[in-house]
Protein backbone atom coordinates (compact mmCIF):
# COMPACT_ATOMS: atom_id res chain seq x y z
CA UNK A 1 0.00 0.00 0.00
CA UNK A 2 1.58 3.32 -1.07
CA UNK A 3 -0.86 5.52 0.82
CA UNK A 4 -3.02 4.58 3.77
CA UNK A 5 -5.66 6.84 5.26
CA UNK A 6 -6.86 5.58 8.64
CA UNK A 7 -9.90 6.91 10.49
CA UNK A 8 -9.38 10.43 9.17
CA UNK A 9 -11.50 13.25 10.65
CA UNK A 10 -11.19 16.87 9.46
CA UNK A 11 -13.18 19.88 10.63
CA UNK A 12 -13.87 23.31 9.20
CA UNK A 13 -14.53 25.19 12.40
CA UNK A 14 -17.26 23.19 14.08
CA UNK A 15 -18.44 21.54 10.90
CA UNK A 16 -17.18 18.03 10.25
CA UNK A 17 -16.00 18.00 6.66
CA UNK A 18 -14.92 14.35 6.70
CA UNK A 19 -15.67 11.75 9.33
CA UNK A 20 -13.68 8.63 10.02
CA UNK A 21 -12.55 7.94 6.47
CA UNK A 22 -10.29 4.95 5.81
CA UNK A 23 -8.96 3.80 2.47
CA UNK A 24 -5.75 2.82 0.77
CA UNK A 25 -4.06 3.55 -2.53
CA UNK A 26 -2.22 0.60 -4.03
CA UNK A 27 1.11 1.23 -5.74
CA UNK A 28 0.75 1.50 -9.51
CA UNK A 29 -3.04 1.77 -9.52
CA UNK A 30 -5.63 4.44 -10.19
CA UNK A 31 -7.87 4.98 -7.18
CA UNK A 32 -10.95 7.18 -7.56
CA UNK A 33 -13.02 9.06 -5.01
CA UNK A 34 -16.43 9.93 -6.38
CA UNK A 35 -19.36 11.74 -4.84
CA UNK A 36 -21.51 14.84 -5.00
CA UNK A 37 -20.46 18.42 -4.33
CA UNK A 38 -19.57 18.92 -0.69
CA UNK A 39 -19.11 15.22 0.02
CA UNK A 40 -15.57 15.86 1.26
CA UNK A 41 -13.51 14.73 -1.74
CA UNK A 42 -11.45 17.89 -2.09
CA UNK A 43 -10.97 18.11 1.68
CA UNK A 44 -9.62 14.58 1.63
CA UNK A 45 -7.04 15.45 -1.04
CA UNK A 46 -6.05 18.70 0.69
CA UNK A 47 -5.57 16.81 3.93
CA UNK A 48 -3.39 14.20 2.24
CA UNK A 49 -1.27 17.07 0.89
CA UNK A 50 -1.14 18.71 4.32
CA UNK A 51 -3.14 21.84 3.52
CA UNK A 52 -5.79 20.93 6.12
CA UNK A 53 -5.22 19.98 9.73
CA UNK A 54 -6.14 16.48 10.85
CA UNK A 55 -8.44 16.31 13.87
CA UNK A 56 -8.20 12.57 14.29
CA UNK A 57 -6.75 9.70 12.36
CA UNK A 58 -3.57 8.95 10.50
CA UNK A 59 -2.05 9.29 7.05
CA UNK A 60 0.73 6.86 6.17
CA UNK A 61 2.76 7.27 2.98
CA UNK A 62 5.18 4.54 1.98
CA UNK A 63 5.25 3.24 5.54
CA UNK A 64 5.94 6.64 7.11
CA UNK A 65 3.44 8.52 9.26
CA UNK A 66 2.98 11.91 7.57
CA UNK A 67 -0.13 13.02 9.47
CA UNK A 68 1.54 16.17 10.77
CA UNK A 69 4.32 16.68 8.20
CA UNK A 70 4.34 20.09 6.47
CA UNK A 71 3.19 20.18 2.86
CA UNK A 72 6.64 20.83 1.40
CA UNK A 73 8.00 17.72 3.14
CA UNK A 74 5.24 15.63 1.58
CA UNK A 75 6.08 17.03 -1.85
CA UNK A 76 9.70 16.01 -1.31
CA UNK A 77 8.55 12.50 -0.38
CA UNK A 78 6.73 12.21 -3.70
CA UNK A 79 3.16 13.44 -3.29
CA UNK A 80 2.10 16.08 -5.78
CA UNK A 81 -1.29 17.51 -6.52
CA UNK A 82 -3.18 19.20 -9.31
CA UNK A 83 -5.59 21.19 -7.16
CA UNK A 84 -9.23 22.02 -7.56
CA UNK A 85 -9.58 25.18 -9.64
CA UNK A 86 -6.17 24.38 -11.15
CA UNK A 87 -4.14 26.82 -9.05
CA UNK A 88 -2.06 27.93 -12.05
CA UNK A 89 0.23 30.87 -11.24
CA UNK A 90 -1.36 33.58 -13.39
CA UNK A 91 1.69 35.86 -13.66
CA UNK A 92 4.15 33.11 -14.59
CA UNK A 93 4.69 31.73 -18.05
CA UNK A 94 3.79 28.14 -18.87
CA UNK A 95 7.46 27.27 -18.63
CA UNK A 96 7.81 28.96 -15.23
CA UNK A 97 4.71 27.17 -13.98
CA UNK A 98 6.22 23.85 -15.05
CA UNK A 99 9.49 24.80 -13.34
CA UNK A 100 7.50 25.51 -10.18
CA UNK A 101 6.25 21.93 -10.39
CA UNK A 102 9.84 20.80 -10.06
CA UNK A 103 10.60 23.25 -7.21
CA UNK A 104 11.37 20.48 -4.73
CA UNK A 105 13.62 18.57 -7.11
CA UNK A 106 17.38 18.84 -6.86
CA UNK A 107 18.12 17.66 -10.41
CA UNK A 108 16.72 20.62 -12.33
CA UNK A 109 19.88 21.04 -14.41
CA UNK A 110 20.09 17.40 -15.54
CA UNK A 111 18.94 15.42 -18.55
CA UNK A 112 16.29 13.67 -16.43
CA UNK A 113 14.60 17.02 -15.93
CA UNK A 114 14.67 17.76 -19.66
CA UNK A 115 13.16 14.34 -20.29
CA UNK A 116 10.31 15.02 -17.90
CA UNK A 117 9.68 18.36 -19.57
CA UNK A 118 9.57 16.66 -22.96
CA UNK A 119 7.24 14.01 -21.58
CA UNK A 120 4.82 16.70 -20.39
CA UNK A 121 4.99 18.40 -23.81
CA UNK A 122 4.33 15.01 -25.41
CA UNK A 123 1.23 14.49 -23.27
CA UNK A 124 0.11 18.10 -23.80
CA UNK A 125 1.50 19.48 -27.09
CA UNK A 126 -0.63 22.56 -26.48
CA UNK A 127 1.60 23.56 -23.58
CA UNK A 128 4.68 23.53 -25.79
CA UNK A 129 2.97 25.89 -28.23
CA UNK A 130 2.22 28.31 -25.40
CA UNK A 131 5.41 27.89 -23.44
CA UNK A 132 6.07 31.64 -23.09
CA UNK A 133 2.49 32.69 -22.50
CA UNK A 134 1.36 33.78 -19.02
CA UNK A 135 -0.62 31.15 -17.11
CA UNK A 136 -3.46 33.58 -16.46
CA UNK A 137 -4.11 34.04 -20.19
CA UNK A 138 -4.66 30.34 -20.94
CA UNK A 139 -8.12 28.87 -21.54
CA UNK A 140 -9.68 26.69 -18.85
CA UNK A 141 -8.72 23.50 -20.64
CA UNK A 142 -5.15 24.65 -21.16
CA UNK A 143 -4.89 25.62 -17.49
CA UNK A 144 -6.07 22.13 -16.55
CA UNK A 145 -3.36 20.62 -18.75
CA UNK A 146 -0.82 22.95 -17.17
CA UNK A 147 -1.92 22.00 -13.65
CA UNK A 148 -1.58 18.28 -14.42
CA UNK A 149 1.69 18.76 -16.29
CA UNK A 150 3.05 20.82 -13.42
CA UNK A 151 2.10 18.10 -10.93
CA UNK A 152 3.99 15.57 -13.09
CA UNK A 153 7.10 17.76 -13.18
CA UNK A 154 7.63 16.88 -9.52
CA UNK A 155 8.21 13.32 -10.76
CA UNK A 156 5.79 12.17 -8.09
CA UNK A 157 5.25 8.67 -6.79
CA UNK A 158 1.64 9.56 -6.09
CA UNK A 159 -0.23 12.24 -8.00
CA UNK A 160 -3.49 13.62 -6.63
CA UNK A 161 -5.83 14.94 -9.29
CA UNK A 162 -8.75 17.07 -8.13
CA UNK A 163 -11.58 17.26 -10.69
CA UNK A 164 -9.38 17.18 -13.78
CA UNK A 165 -12.47 17.19 -16.03
CA UNK A 166 -14.22 20.13 -14.40
CA UNK A 167 -15.46 22.72 -16.86
CA UNK A 168 -13.99 21.02 -19.92
CA UNK A 169 -15.62 20.32 -23.28
CA UNK A 170 -16.68 16.66 -23.68
CA UNK A 171 -13.99 15.91 -26.27
CA UNK A 172 -11.35 17.35 -23.96
CA UNK A 173 -12.69 15.26 -21.05
CA UNK A 174 -12.08 12.08 -23.05
CA UNK A 175 -8.58 13.28 -23.82
CA UNK A 176 -7.74 14.18 -20.20
CA UNK A 177 -8.91 10.76 -18.98
CA UNK A 178 -6.89 8.86 -21.56
CA UNK A 179 -3.88 10.93 -20.50
CA UNK A 180 -4.53 9.95 -16.89
CA UNK A 181 -4.48 6.31 -17.92
CA UNK A 182 -1.29 6.93 -19.87
CA UNK A 183 0.38 8.59 -16.87
CA UNK A 184 -0.59 5.58 -14.80
CA UNK A 185 0.74 3.16 -17.44
CA UNK A 186 4.06 5.00 -17.23
CA UNK A 187 4.24 4.02 -13.57
CA UNK A 188 2.75 6.87 -11.53
CA UNK A 189 0.18 5.99 -8.89
CA UNK A 190 -2.95 8.13 -9.21
CA UNK A 191 -5.56 9.22 -6.70
CA UNK A 192 -8.39 10.83 -8.62
CA UNK A 193 -11.30 12.89 -7.34
CA UNK A 194 -14.16 13.27 -9.81
CA UNK A 195 -17.75 14.26 -10.21
CA UNK A 196 -17.71 12.70 -13.66
CA UNK A 197 -18.31 9.29 -12.10
CA UNK A 198 -18.76 7.21 -15.26
CA UNK A 199 -15.36 8.17 -16.69
CA UNK A 200 -13.64 7.89 -13.31
CA UNK A 201 -15.04 4.41 -12.64
CA UNK A 202 -14.10 3.21 -16.11
CA UNK A 203 -10.48 4.21 -15.55
CA UNK A 204 -10.07 3.37 -11.86
CA UNK A 205 -8.79 0.11 -10.41
CA UNK A 206 -10.30 0.90 -7.02
CA UNK A 207 -13.02 3.40 -6.19
CA UNK A 208 -14.77 4.78 -3.14
CA UNK A 209 -18.05 6.67 -2.94
CA UNK A 210 -18.17 9.62 -0.53
CA UNK A 211 -21.39 10.98 0.90
CA UNK A 212 -21.48 13.84 3.44
CA UNK A 213 -17.97 13.13 4.64
CA UNK A 214 -18.13 9.35 4.86
CA UNK A 215 -17.23 6.47 2.58
CA UNK A 216 -20.47 4.64 1.84
CA UNK A 217 -19.27 2.19 -0.82
CA UNK A 218 -15.97 0.76 -2.00
CA UNK A 219 -14.99 -1.65 -4.73
CA UNK A 220 -13.25 -1.99 -8.04
CA UNK A 221 -14.21 0.49 -10.73
CA UNK A 222 -16.15 -2.21 -12.56
CA UNK A 223 -18.01 -3.33 -9.43
CA UNK A 224 -19.18 0.17 -8.60
CA UNK A 225 -20.15 0.82 -12.22
CA UNK A 226 -22.51 -2.14 -11.92
CA UNK A 227 -23.85 -1.21 -8.48
CA UNK A 228 -27.53 -0.23 -8.74
CA UNK A 229 -27.44 2.50 -6.09
CA UNK A 230 -24.27 4.04 -7.51
CA UNK A 231 -25.85 3.96 -10.98
CA UNK A 232 -28.94 5.69 -9.67
CA UNK A 233 -27.13 8.35 -7.69
CA UNK A 234 -24.05 9.17 -9.79
CA UNK A 235 -24.34 7.67 -13.24
CA UNK A 236 -27.74 8.95 -14.23
CA UNK A 237 -29.02 5.36 -14.26
CA UNK A 238 -28.16 4.75 -17.91
CA UNK A 239 -24.53 3.71 -18.16
Amino acid sequence: MLLEVQGLCVNYGHIEAIRDISFGVEQGEITALIGANGAGKTTTLKTISGLRKVRRGKIVFDGKDITHAPTYERVKMGISQSPEGRGVFPGMTVRENLDMGAYARTDRKTAAYQQDLERVFQLFPRLEERVNQAGGTLSGGEQQMLAIGRALMARPRLVLLDEPSMGLAPRLIQQIFSIITEINDQGTTVLLVEQNASQALRRAHQAHVLETGEIVRSGTGAELSGDESVKAAYLGGDL
Binding site: P70, V75, Y103
Partner: peptide, 23 residues
Amino acid sequence: TRLGRGIRSVAQDPESAALMGVN
Protein backbone atom coordinates in the same frame (compact mmCIF):
# COMPACT_ATOMS: atom_id res chain seq x y z
CA THR B 1 16.30 32.39 -9.43
CA ARG B 2 14.50 29.45 -7.89
CA LEU B 3 14.01 31.29 -4.61
CA GLY B 4 12.73 34.32 -6.50
CA ARG B 5 10.16 32.14 -8.24
CA GLY B 6 9.25 30.75 -4.82
CA ILE B 7 8.58 34.30 -3.58
CA ARG B 8 6.42 35.08 -6.62
CA SER B 9 4.52 31.82 -6.28
CA VAL B 10 3.59 32.54 -2.66
CA ALA B 11 2.49 36.04 -3.69
CA GLN B 12 0.28 34.68 -6.47
CA ASP B 13 -1.27 31.65 -4.80
CA PRO B 14 0.02 30.55 -1.39
CA GLU B 15 -1.84 27.24 -1.40
CA SER B 16 -0.61 26.25 -4.86
CA ALA B 17 2.88 27.31 -3.84
CA ALA B 18 2.74 24.92 -0.89
CA LEU B 19 1.68 22.12 -3.24
CA MET B 20 4.81 22.79 -5.31
CA GLY B 21 6.94 22.17 -2.25
CA VAL B 22 7.58 25.83 -1.40
CA ASN B 23 8.23 26.38 2.30
